[in-house]
Design a binder for these strands. Structure first.
Lengths: 154, 154
DNA sequence: CGATTTAGGACCGAACCGGTCCTGATTCCT
DNA sequence: AGGAATCAGGACCGGTTCGGTCCTAAATCG
């Protein structure tokens, strides 16, 4: 139901975990045990995050991963994109014509972008830094001024 | 990749279609041919939309469906919810404790709500009325002030 | 040179999605 | 009253994709 994949889900957990620790470098096993997730999965995800430029990686015996920049400059949108590909909840993405058989008929067309855009924006405005905050219960629970609050922090 | 189901996708198309026509009542076959989608699918979707209270239905030989209220008062969020269930892109939904094995460990917990909330809000602010507008290309394409524009339209 | 760690990708089972179909209930028309 | 049309509500099934595992390179440290 409008779900992202578990990879992305886990990815956010792992990134949050790394962001909220003092250490700079972590290896996969370390992160896995910390998160209580199977090691192979964690490995896979960290690889993808590194490939996406969100983590720096170091091979070799004392190798590992570290955030490639400060948590305030990493957004949830970026994490999801790195793991699940471009953020678009609809089948028609942006302007790739010809792919949609409904093209001449479809009454929505460009309007999908409204939706995708809205989602994308919402996720771009949540930073990893915010995710490490224990959450101020009064702020976000309802009314959703969470985004505004985030902007203030930024 | 953070996709909603095709049902919801189609649902939005169908609703937009109905909203942008003059007629009040449509039967399933009519809508299906108009949208260029297989009739059984359309039937299924309209049923769900009716059950969700977004369409009024009339049985019998001259029966059919019609929007249960004006398009400006129907949101994309409502359509998706009717077809795909509650809007939550993460595995952990709100406060249903015990379901998540990670509960004691998970460093994000309530922070998922931030994300889900953001998505929900974004989709609640897109009305069916807006979807019928051919889209003003300068407004939404980038910068995403689409939501603000929508608010102005009221 | 050997141990450790990431890189990259092949691979498989299971769950979920998309789509079809069938059987009832309701209403209109003759 | 009876038949036709239309919605209501499921059961059902095949295919795709996701979740997870595993194996083989490449790099780095001691």
């Amino acid at each position: 139901m409008i779900r992202m994949t578990k990879q992305a889900d886990y990815g956010i957990v792992l990134m949050t975990l790394m962001a909220s620790h003092q250490e700079q470098w972590f290896n996969a096993t370390e992160v896995a045990t910390e998160a209580g997730l199977p090691q192979p999965i964690v490995s896979k995800i960290l690889k993808l995050l590194a490939r996406g430029g969100l983590l720096s990686s170091q091979r070799g015996v004392k190798g590992g991963y570290s955030l490639s920049r400060e948590p305030a400059r990493i957004t949830v949108a970026q994490i999801i994109t790195a793991l699940d590909g471009p953020i678009a909840i609809t089948e028609c993405i942006d302007d790739s014509p010809g792919e949609c058989s409904q093209e001449p008929i479809c009454p929505v067309r460009g309007n999908w972008q409204r939706i995708n855009q809205a989602i994308r924006l919402a996720l771009e405005e949540i930073t990893l830094a915010e995710m490490t905050h224990p959450i101020a219960p009064g702020l976000v629970t309802l009314g959703g001024r969470g985004r505004a609050a985030g902007a203030e922090l930024g």
